[in-house]
């Protein structure tokens, strides 16, 4: 049996299964990618796998970029998504630390409430939140900060839940010895727990970033037109009877680019070799 560069044995079984799964996972998206380079007429009469017999076009991409201020909306989406990813993680990491390593009255009850509200459809919160943030309340609706607050709140239950469950797997002895050395909770948190939780933090960061990036409802209701995001702009490409559907295929791909870059940047946390040492502290 052959051996890989890092000395582990090659597993033919793993290779075969992964190739199959990857194909299954890619083919539907490939269909979309191909379709985004076709005219509406071609897409209606030929399957996408017949691309070579029905011709290519860049029209869809051209139309999406031209005159739709896509640059501004990309900038807006980044400004919305980055803080709306980091702030909830920070809030949740502190809370998860308390839930895992500290004792306090009502701990179980609060945690149960957090898990429970995860099933609540966020639509029920829109009206009260518009009242609070809109002109009759704080008057910050339309600004980035309103959307950060909302994404922080709505993303919080899942963040606390996953981070707490991850932190509870960390070896407790490390924290206890830190305390004996006289470290405060604040120091323990930043110097020990955060570095040890990096894989979980990165995993959650990706999820939250994607959710914010692809969010339509909150951005549509709580951002003023000048601040609106890519996904809102994409939806605006449709005419009142759904004209321009073919542009959505191109739009969907354009909106995927940045999430993919984020994933590739953070991917090293999920790939063998780089994190193995860090986790064991």
């Amino acid at each position: 049996m052959s051996v890989m560069a890092d000395g582990r044995r090659r597993s033919p079984f793993a290779i075969v299964v992964m190739v199959l799964l990857c194909l299954l996972w890619t083919i539907p998206t490939l269909g979309l990618l191909v379709t985004s380079f076709r005219t509406r007429d071609a897409a209606a009469t030929h399957g996408w796998w017949e691309i070579f017999s029905s011709g290519w076009t860049l029209d869809n991409y051209d139309k999406v970029f031209n005159g739709n201020e896509m640059g501004t909306s990309f900038l807006n989406t980044v400004v919305v998504a980055v803080p709306a990813t980091i702030i909830p993680i920070m809030f949740a990491a502190f809370a998860a630390y308390a839930f895992t390593f500290m004792d306090f009255r009502g701990k179980d009850l609060i945690f149960v409430a957090i898990v429970a509200v995860m099933v609540v459809p966020i639509q029920v919160a829109f009206q009260p939140m518009l009242d609070l943030l809109g002109p009759r309340g704080l008057g910050i609706s339309g600004q980035y900060i309103a959307v950060w607050l909302l994404h922080t709140g709505f993303g919080m239950p899942l963040a606390i839940y996953t981070l707490r469950n991850y932190m509870s797997t960390l070896p407790r002895t490390v924290i206890e010895s830190a305390k004996i050395d006289g470290a405060t909770h604040f120091q323990t948190f930043w110097r020990l727990i955060v570095p040890m939780s990096v894989p979980a933090l990165a995993a959650f960061a990706i999820l939250q970033f994607l959710w914010v990036w692809n969010d339509l409802l909150i951005a549509k209701l709580f951002l003023s037109p000048g601040n609106s995001t890519v996904i809102v702009k994409l939806q605006g490409l449709l005419g009142s009877q759904g004209q321009g559907q073919e542009l959505l295929t191109a739009g969907a791909f354009i909106s995927m680019v940045i999430p993919m870059i984020v994933f590739f940047t953070l991917q090293r946390f999920f790939v063998r070799g780089l994190t193995a040492g860090a986790v064991k502290g």
Partner: peptide
């Protein structure tokens, strides 16, 4: 492999229904 399985996560809902 991981990127491939991950790609659908980056697809917006509009994209997923089109796909």
């Amino acid at each position: 492999a991981k990127s491939t399985i991950f790609v659908p996560m980056a697809v917006s809902f509009v994209g997923a229904s089109a796909i």
